[in-house]
Amino acid sequence: MLRPTVVLLILGLFVLLHGLNVARRQYSFQHYLRERQITANDFPAPYVTVLNDSVLHGEQPPLDFDYKSTFTKSKIPRTIHFIWYQNLYSTHNGGSQIPAAISRAPELCRQFNPDYDIKIWNATTGREFFATEYAWFLPTYDGYRYPIQRIDALKYFVLYHYGGVYMDLDIACRRPLDPLLAFPAWFPEASPLGVNNDLFAAAPGHPILKRMTQSLEAHNKNWIFPYLTIFYSTGPQFSSDILKEWYEHYKNNGLEVEGKGPDQATPSAFFILPQIYYSEQYTFFGHSPGGTWHGGDVAVVLWFVDHPWALLLVVAVLAAAAYTWRKRRQSLSRDRTLDKSNAV
Rank of each mutant, 00 (worst) to 15 (best):
R175H: 02
A185K: 02
G163N: 07
D170A: 01
H307D: 09
Q275E: 12
P176D: 02
D142R: 02
W246K: 00
I102Y: 13
A265T: 03
K260S: 10
E245N: 03
Y85Q: 00
H18G: 14
M212R: 03
T229K: 09
K221T: 14
P308R: 08
F200G: 02
L88T: 02
L9T: 09
T292Q: 11
P77C: 13
K75M: 01
P114W: 01
Y156F: 11
V344Q: 15
R104F: 14
P289W: 12
L63H: 05
I102V: 15
R211D: 11
S54E: 01
H249N: 07
G58P: 06
D170T: 06
R25F: 11
G291R: 09
F284K: 03
K221N: 15
N41R: 14
C173F: 03
P62D: 08
R326C: 06
S54T: 11
L313F: 15
P226Y: 03
I276G: 00
L51Y: 07
R175D: 03
T132G: 06
P62C: 04
G235D: 04
R78P: 04
L13Y: 10
S90N: 07
D178S: 01
E59W: 00
F29A: 06
V6L: 09
G58I: 06
Q111G: 03
L255C: 13
L318W: 13
W246V: 04
D335M: 15
F43D: 03
V48S: 02
T125Q: 14
H294D: 09
A123I: 07
V257T: 10
A190R: 11
Y156V: 06
Q149E: 12
T213K: 09
A182K: 04
V48D: 02
G194H: 08
K75T: 10
S191N: 15
G94K: 09
V301Y: 08
D178M: 05
L169T: 09
Y85F: 13
S28L: 00
R336C: 12
L11G: 07
P147S: 04
A265M: 15
A172M: 02
I98D: 01
I276F: 05
S288A: 10
Y323G: 03
A201N: 06
Y134S: 11
